[in-house]
Design a protein around this nucleic acid. Structure first.
Lengths: 131, 131
DNA sequence: TTCCACCTTCCAATCATTGGAAGGTCAAGC
DNA sequence: GCTTGACCTTCCAATGATTGGAAGGTGGAA
């Protein structure tokens, strides 16, 4: 199978598959005589694994670890769980931060007339807020 | 005032102030004979405005618009509010996405023993999940 | 004059991806 | 056999916001 078909079946586009190869996340594909990359069913599985990890927000660095654990049949589930829960914490921290941003902004926006007048609590809020 | 003092008083580090100048977010500072950038009180205000906008999660592009509106004394508050509420939506969309990631991951993690055994629902969840 | 903290520019790295250019390959239709 | 078009290749660059470092000039105080 060529890279195009792998892209279609795995849901990871061809450009990105090449990139993953370049950064060493996936092994170098074997090639046809003319230089085309050749893939097998296993690669579909592999890229889907990566795609799903991405969709859970894991970084490439974390995904490399996950892939290592995935392939290591004698892994300790403890390690996987720790990685996952650390990531959950990271996510929740970001969520909290963004929620605070949204809340603060909504408070400012609520008091803004939102009409043709220049007077605007949002601008005022950005002008002076401590320090 | 030199860039270092501006950095301290505004809360935006010197490196970043130069960068903001380079991308045209702030005007080019005047210079001493020896080439040092010179700033005034107004610049403190300006950079604080930018810092606060950043802390609300606005992108540089949006901040450019906000700065334009800030300086335009005949702005319509409608425009500011629209910009703010669009940004709130962007934030809330991201929050929702990340919340889903965290929730999904927590579900997987909850069923994981997290001990020395290799068996792991998190890995399984990444292995097969539709498609 | 020496020392250190400060300033300057320029170039590169981060992170994960996407884009384009320039060119080679493959299979189908004529 | 030739052309067409879809596919493949590599390489380099941009995204967005910042941070890092190198290499060198400046300012003021001891």
């Amino acid at each position: 199978m060529n890279i195009g078909e792998l892209a279609k079946t795995s849901g990871v586009n061809a450009k990105l598959i090449r990139h993953y190869e370049a950064i060493g996340l996936i092994p170098k594909a074997s090639r046809t005589e003319s230089g085309y990359r050749v893939y097998s069913e296993k690669d579909i599985q592999f890229l889907r694994f990566i795609r799903r990890a991405r969709s859970l927000g894991f970084s490439m660095k974390e995904i490399k670890k996950l892939v290592g654990l995935w392939r290591n049949k004698s892994r300790a589930s403890r390690e996987v769980k720790a990685l996952a829960l650390t990531h959950v914490q990271t996510l929740e921290k970001k969520i909290t931060e963004m929620q605070e941003m949204a809340d603060n902004l909504k408070i400012l926006a609520r008091n803004c007339h939102g009409d043709g007048r220049p007077d605007c609590p949002i601008i005022k809020g950005l002008e002076n807020n401590g320090e």
